[in-house]
Write a protein that binds this DNA or RNA. Sequence first.
DNA 1: TGCAAATTTGAGCATATACTCTATTTTGAA
DNA 2: TTCAAAATAGAGTATATGCTCAAATTTGCA
Lengths: 184, 184
Amino acid sequence: MARYKVGLETRERILKATRALLADVGVEGITLKAITDLAGVRAGSFYNLFETKEAAVLTVVREAIAAMDPGDEGNDTLEDLVSAYVTFMTEQSSMAQVYLQIAVSATRNNAPIRQRFANGHRYRIERFTTALLRDRPEIGVPEATIRIEALIAALNGFGIARHIDPSFDLNGHASRMLELTRTQ
Amino acid sequence: MARYKVGLETRERILKATRALLADVGVEGITLKAITDLAGVRAGSFYNLFETKEAAVLTVVREAIAAMDPGDEGNDTLEDLVSAYVTFMTEQSSMAQVYLQIAVSATRNNAPIRQRFANGHRYRIERFTTALLRDRPEIGVPEATIRIEALIAALNGFGIARHIDPSFDLNGHASRMLELTRTQ
DNA sequence: TGCAAATTTGAGCATATACTCTATTTTGAA
DNA sequence: TTCAAAATAGAGTATATGCTCAAATTTGCA
């Protein structure tokens, strides 16, 4: 694939365009022409760098799912995780948008994307649950898991609300929801 | 348009197909061929009943936005409204799916749909807020509005969670969220 | 039952789409 | 500086898409 510097730069421009368009029109609505026009590239150049349109889409989708989760693993607190979620939503809004698009469609008709999403979701629940149990071990795994599922679901809802109305107080509502999760 | 019985039946089959497909692939992904194939109708028949593909889509979208809200207006309690939301999500899942698809994409690139959605959303917030204030007038309009925005956002998140994982206890989480909204 | 209006079909049209191929230019290690 | 590998442009291909139209069939009121 890309070996020269210009090639890598072009690849980045294509991925950036794909990201913006996926946030806008979703996996089902994106077209090659839209990508190449926005990236300022002809079809031939695109196919020199990506096997298919789907390959570029899947690259961005993977990115978006991975970007949901903060880097340091192990002993993050629930605050850290919620705060990382809020940061992701506010500071990487294109990627967040892509993630939410995938979450709602669950992309029934696209097996690799569905699989990625399901794995990411399961992993996130485990990580959040572990953090909650470190803080409140008396809750127990089953109840902690249920509360975390609700927390993450609510956070997704808040993320959507914020993108409908940018004045939505994502941080405040997330904190309140975190408290509810902890103390119920 | 449709005047004979067969025509009205065909119209219904087309709308049913459109509904199912919108739930699957969203506004950006739906195609005329997919609609007519699923409805068992040729293109000519479709265009005898609808001006454009978009007209059928918009009809279903309107339906989905309207179906979000329960019929009786006026003195419903917050429980009634939340319970109606849960019922809508569980018993009209195609339509709920369409609604959520629109909520995330907010359909930036489709002015009439965006407008409809925004109006429906604003109306819903008012209705929920009124119900909350009837029960807890001491909260006051600004705080009540903020809490309702969070409640509705969380409910949307729960709706998405339920459709990712049908075992998600939508009713339980919605009730808990309702309590949080009331008592905080 | 006659018949005008409604419905349905299916071929056809213009454009969009995903992707290929060849010729040309650019890159950067030796 | 040379030159093979890489990058790019852009015309071309096959299929998909939204939609039209004329002809044939069906509907249901008078």
